[in-house]
Amino acid sequence: MELNLDQIPREKTLTKKEFLRKYFQPQKPVVIEQFIEDWPAYSKWNLDYMKEIAGEKIVPLYDDRPVKHDEGFNEPHAQMKMKDYVDLLQSEPTKYRIFLWNVLKEVPELQKDFTYPDFGLRLMKGLPMLFFGGSNSHTFMHYDIDLANIFHFHFEGRKQCILFSQSETKFLYKIPHSLITREDIDFANPDLEKWPALKHAKGHVAHLEHGNVLYIPEGYWHHMKYITPGFSMSLRAIARRPRNFGKAIYNIMFMRHFDNLMRRLKGQKWIDWKNERAIVRTHNMVFQK
């Protein structure tokens, strides 16, 4: 058996009115195939260009090792110069990814290569973030701490994106007091005998190529797998639905601080307890009458 995933709708292009009516208001994902062809970035941005313009920058790197109690929130696992990282991406498979790399802060001149599109939502202009990955590297299934509306612009390479709405959370083995699912679930090829609740989850999938834009609605879970080396940029707009906005405030103001406190007080026992509770809670919700 495989996950129950629908192909995300694809549109050649969309007007603001069409996007708001067909996708934002009902909170449905969409891939827009031809939206950024007038950006200089469309023709300029590739790995070689990033190596040229940002080669001496030290970049934070993340892999798929499980969360440890003594690691801080979003703390990188390694770092190297961008030019060396691009060489690594182009020479061999690597699990190292760049995550939440702020274009404005790190390489301000890159802002000349794109504009903030008018989707009818107010984009947060201080937070254009780049994400890089090597062949077969992937993120854990997660949702963003602020439950934002995300516009994910893909550049070089091919990427598989699996999405679930918050309504499917009860099937996903969510870790308590966190934004991730069990890290030992391979959402690209899950063992549905080991994780039987996933059989009930209904999600979405798309493959992104150069120039594609993926709209990820508020609070959607997402798992990103790089089929080939490449990178993307995300722009975001604040959650508009009151329930999601309230969750975002709770996550930022309380949840992450409580989790960090419990890591310091209980160490690895806290992580182990959360991992076990993810299974118990999920199976209780799904299978117990």
Rank of each mutant, 00 (worst) to 15 (best):
G120N: 10
D146K: 06
Y215M: 09
G246D: 09
W195T: 03
L127V: 12
N212S: 06
L172P: 10
P229Y: 02
F155V: 08
G120M: 12
M255P: 04
F231L: 08
F132C: 13
S167R: 14
Y220E: 05
H210C: 04
D259Q: 12
H154I: 12
N251I: 00
R158S: 11
K174G: 13
M233K: 08
W221P: 05
E209Y: 06
V213K: 03
F131H: 08
M253C: 13
K125M: 15
K174A: 14
G133S: 07
H204A: 13
E218W: 01
I180T: 15
M124I: 12
H210K: 15
G134S: 06
K194T: 10
I249F: 08
P190F: 00
E183N: 09
L261P: 11
F151K: 03
N244A: 15
H138K: 10
H138G: 00
F153M: 07
M233N: 06
W221H: 06
Y143I: 07
I175F: 00
W195D: 05
K225R: 07
F131A: 12
W221L: 05
V213N: 13
A197S: 11
A188H: 00
L121Q: 01
P128I: 08
R158Y: 14
F171E: 04
F131T: 13
F231H: 02
G157Q: 01
I162P: 00
F254N: 13
T169A: 08
F245V: 14
Y250S: 03
K194I: 05
P229K: 00
P242V: 12
S234K: 03
P176W: 08
E168V: 03
